[in-house]
Design a protein around this nucleic acid. Structure first.
Lengths: 357, 357
DNA sequence: CTGAAAGCGCTAACAC
DNA sequence: GTGTTAGCGCTTTCAG
């Protein structure tokens, strides 16, 4: 009742054990006829090569690890898509993907895992601008690649979202709608100074784009909450009453902004346009109107990361791939032509009723 | 430069290869003294057992697979937490977790993967009420357990959210606040009739609880979008003007309901209370006010699923574990005392301004 | 083009 | 208590 072995297949096909192996892996030419007999025997027995035995003998497990940090709040649909895309790609290429969730500083643990020789390579997710895991992996000598990238990228393959291009596309789109006063709403300042790549790069991108388009770059940091978003929005509009469009990099805050706008009596997109950067469809469609967003190709990123790693594993001296993938603009209901700021309601609350105890 | 083997450890410690093995696994008593020498040699060499070799020899890979369906829209933070919780638990117990994303009907593929003898057991996620994967796994004879459960649960271990209890807790909480007209907002009817467990069980739970509390069970199906939520809400209030509280099982729709309420001039929670079932903190805090929610212990569920499976693997005849875990009530800003329905604004739009082209 | 046989690094009898 | 050794199922020389 146990799984058939290669020997059984060989017997059934009247060939040597090794011939079955060669036929299976194409490591050596096998005559058409015997290949057929072997293939037949294999299907009749429902044979599947024993992954562990194969790995032990060949010194290649065909297993790769996905290294991702312990869940911070703020992980959601996008990150799940990364993981799924990676797992699907691996599966499609005949590999298995194991999950190694790990504190970003638990470098000892990482080393232990690598030494078990279970995996051929490692895919690192959520790379920080200054990431100690990278140095360790290089030191250990395990093949690896990254989704995301450290500040100084050297000789490691990576894929990442092209935050600058993404920001540029968002701004360009808004400018095309006639907006001239565009503000950028970032994550909290702590994330920025801690070197959180997306925050840093999107901010840099925005300043660059705005400046080169002849606009004044207006930016705000903002805590990751609806409440903070609402507050920062009020503050922003007070300081810059002419702002007609927002580019946001902070989903909870974006939700708060919409509430704040509505409370002011502003309509979206009539009085204010919003483009939410790096937002999944799932989140973008939770608001009314739904958010025009720059949507990351998350599954694609996961897929590319895995492909890059496996190619490196199978073809030792392959050229380095370092690829940036911009988000895609999905126009929904939160953007429209620029209004005349002067025509917008001025009162702080557009609600017609006062709260009753 | 290659990893040290057990033989090297044995030499360094002046013992037989097997003694190292026994010391490592505790499979056989080893004297305190030799154990120490061995341990010392191991740490000096930085020895880590070779996972594949160990697995091949012992016929136990210490790898388990997490089977989850290809991403439908609607997978988000909660599901990621399942996965992470499972991976962390596995790691903590000395196991590895591989990801097998798979169409729920791709049963052939599943069989192939299992036959590779890579994994000792399988953890099935997102189990449907009528799930063909279950029957196949049982047939193959692989040990497995589930997160979620089919309609007829027999002799397989599982953990699942206790939807009935969760619904009961939500209703009880609202009743305690004085609400008497409570409506349930479900997912789309298609999901329900297709046998989507959470939808079916929560609905059943609601009817049961409402009835036994002497309330009229009011329910609505609703598409998973903010727009649909707003529409269904209008419809619901038209039909049942006395409803003062909503129990929802549909996040995008819940967001729409809040917009709809606000458009009507209703304040939350003054004019309407909302409890969102099975919602993560991340989502619940995106609204203003933030949503009072029944939050699933997702990581815990993933963890329990893995523990259950591994215990089954290590201790052949262990008693069956079938555990239901209720969500936890997290009170935020969307719930309050029941208002007098008659005092609420009646006009359909509370906004003071008409859209201008 | 095909076979025979030596490992891969470890576990688990079987000896003492 | 410890040592010796036969595999686990496969890949890959080395012969033919």
């Amino acid at each position: 009742m146990s799984a058939p072995t290669m020997l059984e297949v060989a017997k059934k096909a009247n060939v040597a054990l090794s011939t079955v192996s060669y036929a299976l892996n194409g490591t050596r030419p096998v005559s058409e006829e015997t290949r057929l007999r072997i293939w037949q025997a294999m299907t009749e027995l429902g044979y599947q090569p024993h992954a562990l035995a194969r790995g032990l003998a060949s010194k290649r497990s065909r297993i790769i690890a996905l290294l991702f940090p312990a869940l911070p709040r703020g992980f959601g649909a996008t990150e799940l898509e990364f993981v799924t895309g990676a797992a699907e790609a691996a599966q499609g290429m005949g590999y298995h993907l194991v999950l190694w969730p790990m504190e970003i500083h638990a470098v000892g643990e990482l080393q232990q895992l690598v030494r078990q020789s279970l995996v051929d390579g490692v895919l690192v997710m959520e790379v920080r601008l200054n990431d100690e895991r990278i140095e360790l992996l290089r030191q250990i000598g395990v093949p690896f690649s990254m989704i995301g990238r450290p500040a100084a990228v050297s000789d490691i393959g990576f894929v990442d979202i092209d935050f600058e291009q993404t920001t540029r596309d968002a701004v360009t789109y808004l400018v095309g709608l006639g907006h001239r006063q565009i503000a950028f709403l970032n994550h909290a300042e702590e994330a920025f100074t801690a070197g959180y790549g997306p925050s840093v790069r999107a901010a840099a991108g925005f300043n660059l784009v705005a400046t080169s388009a002849g606009l004044t770059p207006i930016s705000r940091f903002c805590g990751d909450s609806a409440m903070a978003g609402q507050d920062v929005f009020e503050d922003l509009i007070a300081a810059h009453p002419d702002v007609t469009a927002l580019v946001t990099m902070n989903e909870p805050a974006t939700f708060g902004v919409m509430q704040g706008a509505s409370r002011r009596g502003w309509r979206i997109p009539d009085d204010l346009s919003i483009v939410s950067l790096v937002s999944s469809a799932r989140v973008a469609e939770m608001t009314l109107p739904p958010l025009t967003a720059m949507t990351p190709q998350s599954a694609q990123l996961g897929r590319l990361g895995v492909e890059m790693l496996i190619e490196q594993l199978e073809d030792g001296n392959r050229e380095l791939v370092q690829q940036l993938l911009p988000c895609r603009l999905v126009i929904r209901g939160s953007t429209g032509p620029s209004p005349d700021p002067a025509t917008r309601p001025h009162q702080k609350s557009g609600s017609s009723r006062v709260a009753t105890g």
